[in-house]
Write a protein that binds this DNA or RNA. Sequence first.
DNA 1: TTGAAAGCGTTACCAT
DNA 2: ATGGTAACGCTTTCAA
Lengths: 343, 343
Amino acid sequence: MATIWDVAREAGVSPSTVSNVIHGRPVVKPATRQRVLEAIAKLDYHPSRVAQGLRQQTSRAIGFLVLDPNPRWPADPLHAEVLAGLSEIATEHDYSLLLDRPPGNGQLTARELLQPFRSGQIDAAVVALAGTSDSHQHVLDALNQAGVLFAVLEREIEGECAYSVMGANEDGAYAATQKLLRDGRRRIAFLDSTQMWPAIELRLSGYRRAMREAGLEANILISPSPDWTSAGGATAMLNLLARCEREGPPCPDAVLAGNDVLAVGAMHVLRERGLRIPADVAVIGFDDFEFARYVDPPLTTVRLPAYEMGKRAAELLIAHLEGHPASQRRHVLPTELVVRQSG
Amino acid sequence: MATIWDVAREAGVSPSTVSNVIHGRPVVKPATRQRVLEAIAKLDYHPSRVAQGLRQQTSRAIGFLVLDPNPRWPADPLHAEVLAGLSEIATEHDYSLLLDRPPGNGQLTARELLQPFRSGQIDAAVVALAGTSDSHQHVLDALNQAGVLFAVLEREIEGECAYSVMGANEDGAYAATQKLLRDGRRRIAFLDSTQMWPAIELRLSGYRRAMREAGLEANILISPSPDWTSAGGATAMLNLLARCEREGPPCPDAVLAGNDVLAVGAMHVLRERGLRIPADVAVIGFDDFEFARYVDPPLTTVRLPAYEMGKRAAELLIAHLEGHPASQRRHVLPTELVVRQSG
DNA sequence: TTGAAAGCGTTACCAT
DNA sequence: ATGGTAACGCTTTCAA
């Protein structure tokens, strides 16, 4: 592997000059530049990002730090969309993207999240943490205190350096519930999960608010899935139906699912039970992932701009690194009710 | 940020000793080790991976190099599953995972793919290239010649350093087509795409072989999607139906889709046209992504073990890096026909 | 068992 | 316009 010294020797100049050429500094005179470029091409020289990183104390990489109990998290459509957005922007600005899943499956320590920063692997990170919105708060505080640059997804944040990129989850769930209420639905159930996720609390809260305002607080009915898979959604729906049959509250006439993946599982169960969608039970999902419009009946859902959120987060961080911090710390991207045929 | 010198000073030892402690070398005597560990904790010291990388000429990172015209590639379920497998194994072995999309949208150059290796960012890479199986061959040859370690997905490979991880695409498509033939289907169409992908050629070839062996070569009918989205699948299906109505070959009684994403779009169109699945038209997909069993009717499909392929690729590379090269270069993971109700 | 010093490949300052 | 050189933080001989 050729080094800058090899190039310098080949071109009959000093490493400093080669460096100047690499960085396009206008000090080198054309003839010299030419010779250096030829030497670079001839030796197939690539500057070592590692050495550059050590010298300049910067890595030109951003991290995607995900704390999720599910090892298959990248296969979750929401994560995947965010990742796509991050990757898009990173590539565009010649930044690398480092995927990092902190090892601790149990309690997350600040040390673990700080590790990639401290070890010089990344200049900034996008952080997505499972759990309730107040869990891991100490970790975020620690990141803030450490003065590292990061953007957190779907969470409110205090502190100086952090950005926060969120979807309007509360609004979205409120709008969806209202739509169901307008359609005459009264027994609207919500499918959430025992595995908490910050955005879910907000979605739940939007649902609750709409129910409360409609004077239907007594009808609030929540069934948890064990995870965020369609299989889990099916289980949650099954449990819900069983509970209603057993304990008396009549079957729901509508279901608002915590996300589309759950909704798909729930619809499957409803169909199997011979319940018509939306005639007997309306279903509304959340996220508007690619397949929402292709399930049968096409899924009415609240669109969350996950791809755009990924892009925004990356843009904020990179701009900040390049000396253009945004004035807004908190970025809320709008959600939108996409009415199809399931509810 | 504390350096190894700070720790050394704090513990009253030399940097060498701190280094020895960090790497768990048994030369340091317990009392010293203790003092060093305390200093590390006190200063919240993290060794710089960058400096380590520079010194040891190794990065402890593997790259996922994806050449795909679609910027949203991580949202494709297949990619996402592979990525999940890679991430799982990388984390397990304390390797970082670097996502890299070469900038060139047009013709890929070897230089671009070599860049992350040469610049010391990664020790090895998993490579996924869109295009036909012979396109970009020169690039893979160049990688081989450069002596870098990599595993290529869904492609045959010659050469010394490369691994190849594939699914049994030809087998899977052959089995699926045979199943349709056994069920009495005769006019079986295949949905592929103008955007080629190595695995698709094999799937297509399995389909062709089965049709040929059944003496139905004349019935081979192929409709391309403009991309690999469900919307594209719908377009391909629409075009197919239009062509049949216009030009005479009777409507297909079965569709083998290049992948599940396409299949979902195709099913949507069939339903809209009032065609019953599978009574009028059977549909079989490919991949068995999470939602295959939840569409209506549940999708019969060829399961491709994408998650396992990701894991395998990462395992091979990491084992190789740690001095345990596998004897097998070429790894073919089996596919399996999952019969549900669509075909 | 521990320490001193060279070197990994680059950049940035200071000379020339 | 170009070159010399120290420094980035670490590991690795080699010597003590």
